[in-house]
Design a protein around this nucleic acid. Structure first.
Length: 585
RNA sequence: GGCCCCAUAGCUCAGUUGGAUAGAGCACGCGCCUUCUAAGCGCGGGGUCGCAGGUUCGAAUCCUGCUGGGGUCGCCA
């Protein structure tokens, strides 16, 4: 339950009453009426812009309409004061009980607190990672993996039905190169001296294992065969081995992808041909010659007729080729078929999480999605900017040639899965991110992972302590939900409750914006509120959670503490991080 | 040259889809441990939201044009 949305409904009800009473005209557009918590705490608990939005429609001034609204709002039982302020805001202050009951709401809901129904069962498809099966996942893949996975969790919490997909690019020339590279390692495994890996092939050591495994399985049967015989075998064998490793790495990171789609299978099924015919039927295919890119003409440019998709009809900058000169489909053509396939499987909201180098790909894919689904599906693309790996403030040098690139596995082994997941959400996806091995494992307030975990651990610590000192007390969620919450009267306590009451609203906003990083920032704010209250108890012993001579007050505060732990756990679950019971290692 | 992203405190970044006097953290200065974990908390200084216009009750946020940084640019995926 979102208290802000809830109150907005009450407000709209009052507006209806005012219409009925003839105070307002019929047919008002209330779409832009908002109820939100003001930035400035002194402005109260909630604030509405209704007077400013409606004044124009009514034909009066905001400051004139606002007092009428304030009068009505002030008469509501839960509203303490309703004041007109600024250009026409109505600021509301609620009775403390309005907030206190939220603690019980949290405890009754448990970690499901914050769940929403705005998704209304709508089906969303999120494609993420989708790294080429030509090598192990490296550190940069972690970001897309976490961003996609957390977004999936978030949307599920908001009531959407979510599919998590990985598109395996197992068609095209790159996997052929992989097959040839693996063949070299295969011969090496059989004792041949292969020398330097030729340019154009993948030099990575990870292929040695692939070569050995194949030699073990098949012996020397491919040695004297022509490439046309062994290439498909080697290619498929290598893809399978590498995908196995990728799946393991994803599992280690806790990434919950449940559908792996093969590009090659898609092409083989005729889906690309079908998609092509669909576009043709819509009159969006033609033979034409593209202009060379302005200002930067490739050396080998020559104008030639191509099979083009009219992407410009849907907002792209140029029309895009669907066939290579050898007649086979371009990657783009295959991807159109894949997105159509998602739509045909019942998804109308499509999200692709892609790397920074795919920025130029967004417009054409959105154009194609709109075109081929007749506007019935929308594609949102989340571009993840680069991750700069650092250590002690200095960049970690990486070179594919020298083999010193850092794998995802390396990073997880070094700092742990929870740290990777949390840190990847401490920036908006379109902002570059520094990942400093020293900083992210530091146990200090500079490290948001630690800071949030410490908050949860402190809550648990208090509850453990309470259980030890009062063995008779029942401290289950159900019992604490019945605690005498009216004993929570301190401003810091009520402030903390207000933050918690904002969690459902945050979930809905973040889900609608497809922005999971907001959860990480929210948890930081919540933790700050708790740490502040904790330390108040150091200066003033009457503020401590455990009041030795007041069992009732203690129970109320334990309910508050348990609620904080619950909301933190609820948020961490979206990020995919395990809340810890204590920080001692 | 076209397109996309970014530009907010000295530094790293948020900013509730257009709201009020723009917020955190780091760094800097001062204060707080006989205590449920000081691995933390409080107070203070610090801003032309890159620049210039426009839209309206109201702009860091939306539109246009510039400046600077990154990415990308027909048959790689």
């Amino acid at each position: 339950m979102n208290v802000f949305k809830d109150f907005r409904k009450r407000l709209l009800g009052l507006l209806d009453e005012m219409v009925a009473a003839g105070e307002l005209p019929v047919g008002l557009d209330t779409a832009r009426v908002t109820v939100e918590s003001p930035r400035e705490a002194s402005h109260g608990d909630m604030s509405t812009n209704a007077a400013m939005v409606l004044a124009g429609q009514v034909g009066t001034a905001p400051r004139q309409l606002a007092p009428q609204l304030a009068l009505r709002l002030g008469a509501l039982p839960e509203v303490l004061t309703a004041e007109v302020a600024g250009p026409g805001f109505v600021n509301l202050r609620f009775a403390p009980d309005f907030w206190r009951v939220q603690v019980a709401e949290v405890l009754r809901a448990g970690t499901a607190y914050g769940a929403s129904t705005i998704g209304a069962g709508q089906r969303v498809n999120i494609e993420y990672v989708s790294a080429n099966p030509t090598g192990p996942l490296h550190a940069a893949h972690a970001r897309g993996a976490v961003v996609g996975d957390a977004l999936a969790n978030l949307l599920e919490k908001a009531g959407f039905i979510v599919a998590r997909e990985y598109y395996i690019n197992d068609a095209g020339s790159q996997v052929e190169t992989l097959g040839r590279s693996a063949y070299l390692r295969y011969r090496e495994a059989l004792g041949e001296e292969i020398g330097e890996i030729p340019a154009g092939l993948y030099p990575g050591d990870y292929l040695k294992e692939v070569g050995r495994a194949l030699a073990e399985r098949d012996g020397g049967r491919w040695l004297d065969q022509p490439e046309s015989t062994w290439l498909p075998v080697l290619r498929d064998f290598a893809i399978d081995r590498i995908m196995l490793g990728i799946r393991e790495d994803l599992a280690t990171l806790g990434i919950g992808i449940n559908v792996f789609s093969s590009e090659r299978a898609l092409v083989a099924s005729g889906a690309v041909q079908a998609a092509f015919e669909e576009l043709s039927a819509r009159g969006l295919i033609y033979q034409g010659v593209l202009d060379p890119p302005k200002g930067k003409k490739p050396d080998d440019w020559e104008p030639r007729p191509q099979t083009l998709f009219r992407a410009t009809d849907y907002g792209d900058d140029v029309d895009r080729p669907l066939r290579k000169s050898d007649g086979s489909w371009t990657y783009f053509a295959n991807d159109i078929a894949y997105h159509l396939d998602k739509f045909r499987r019942g998804f109308t909201v499509l999200i692709d999480v892609l790397g920074a180098d795919h920025g130029g790909y967004v417009k054409r894919m959105q154009a194609a999605t709109t075109a081929i689904t007749g506007g019935k599906a929308a594609l949102d693309v989340k571009i993840c900017q680069l991750v700069h790996l650092m250590d002690q403030g200095k960049p970690v040098k990486m070179s594919k040639r020298a083999g010193t690139f850092v794998t995802l596995r390396d990073v997880i082994d070094e700092v742990g899965r929870d740290v990777v997941r949390f840190i990847m959400l401490t920036r908006r996806n379109d902002q570059t991110l520094d990942f400093d091995f020293a900083k992210v494992t530091e146990q200090s307030k500079d490290n948001p992972v630690f800071y949030v975990q410490y908050c949860h651990a402190r809550c648990r610590s208090v509850l453990r302590h309470a259980a030890e000192t009062r063995p008779a007390a029942v401290l289950t969620l159900e019992a604490l939900a019945e605690a005498p919450l009216h004993r929570l009267v301190e401003p810091e306590e009520l402030a903390l409750i207000r933050i918690m009451a904002g969690w459902p609203r945050l979930v809905e906003g973040a889900a609608e914006a497809h922005e999971a990083h907001r959860v990480a920032f929210y948890l930081y704010d919540l933790a700050a509120g708790f740490h502040a209250l904790w330390n108040k108890g150091k200066d003033d012993t009457t503020l401590r959670f455990l009041a030795p001579d007041d069992a009732e007050l203690t129970l109320a505060r334990l309910a508050l503490v348990q609620a904080v732990a619950t909301v933190v756990a609820s948020g961490l679950a979206v990020i995919g991080v395990e809340p810890v019971e204590e920080m001692r290692s």
